[in-house]
Nucleic acid binder design. Sequence first.
DNA 1: CCGGAGATGGGTGGCACCACCCATGTACGG
DNA 2: CCGTACATGGGTGGTGCCACCCATCTCCGG
Lengths: 222, 222
Amino acid sequence: MIDRTVPGPVRILLADDHALVRRGVRLILDGEPDLEVVAEAGDGAEALALAREHRPDLAVLDVAMPRMTGLQAARELSAALPGLRLLMLTMYDNEQYFFEALKAGASGYVLKSVADRDLVEACRSAMRGEPFLYPGAVTALIRHYLDRARQGDGVPEKILTAREEEILKLVAEGHSSKEIAATLVISVKTVERHRANMLHKLGMRDRLELTRYAIRVGLIEP
Amino acid sequence: MIDRTVPGPVRILLADDHALVRRGVRLILDGEPDLEVVAEAGDGAEALALAREHRPDLAVLDVAMPRMTGLQAARELSAALPGLRLLMLTMYDNEQYFFEALKAGASGYVLKSVADRDLVEACRSAMRGEPFLYPGAVTALIRHYLDRARQGDGVPEKILTAREEEILKLVAEGHSSKEIAATLVISVKTVERHRANMLHKLGMRDRLELTRYAIRVGLIEP
DNA sequence: CCGGAGATGGGTGGCACCACCCATGTACGG
DNA sequence: CCGTACATGGGTGGTGCCACCCATCTCCGG
């Protein structure tokens, strides 16, 4: 554990599939004396590898990345490097994914559209162990709390399981049940079973609606 | 017209809905002595207004922006400010889109994923009146040229007809052929005919791909 | 230790989608 | 005035999606 009483700069791992965004984030963060980007990853898998290598203090992760999403990466990183702080960076102000991010162990959630204003502060908050919530997230949090208080029931519950999300991603990318079954080495019926469960859970009618949902929540790009 | 024989820095209008991307692009461009960002817009409409106000030499436009897409903005800007150079910035390496950009009057097309490397060079190419094409675009261009050379016909022209676009919108919103037929007061077969024509034109396989296409080009929201 | 949740797999049937085939009418430009 | 593009409509057949039904196995928590 790094001795935070005599702090050097916070060592940051940056993961985003767009070099341009990485460049912007790096310039913003490296402009601060107490923050330093030590590694850049272009996808979730690379982030995981680089985190193991560089042991950063903080990981700033894009939610939507190829191969492994930022949320999956966050879960893996949490498990692999327990002391690591996590900050999610996203294009979409989506309530569901905001809660997923918190559950995946993220300390904060910053919208790309306002990131130039909030990002540095979010990093510092994360390192102090405090959550950082952009204003829209606070609104979502309050609305969600009120909703549950009104209905009187329990925790937000994860809408989709990890396996379902995996299959949703493939469905939304346009793969047929047969293709997905081949990819995951399971039967077509199981793929259809998962897809049917998702349709039921989300109150949707077909894979087209699932696709738009996946795009909305940032699981895939159009 | 500015006198390019005694050039000051190229005055650039930057339009992207993500402040973070704008920040990155601005830092990259302002780091060059011959380039200067004079205005930033968060969407296409704002870009149009700022272009009228600042009369920049070059506009760097994100393809996907809220309210008015970069392509729409490019067309409007071309019409409003004939001398203006245009450079499109995009997340998607999509052939169709790339040709739309060229048709909208863009001098170049740069992928965000490689923009930190290519962007400055693309700006200078645009100001010299030369096209800038990232390698993938060159490949697409050659393939397209060969396709047309083989078939012996002319310019790409408008991809979809007005009626097709109308039907695409409904398809992408998730309506079935029967519903669309009822809405437009035509037969189911005609709807299917139009849809099949679109699939053929765009080289796609099913309505799911059509949906993503519609989202990409800003015809509908996810 | 048992119940629930999750992942796995199978069968049947209806319907939408999609790829082929065919045709007619209109409008516009060479 | 004729060809081409566009919109219209019909038929046939294959395949995938989706809604139902059924089951087994594992894992975790009460």
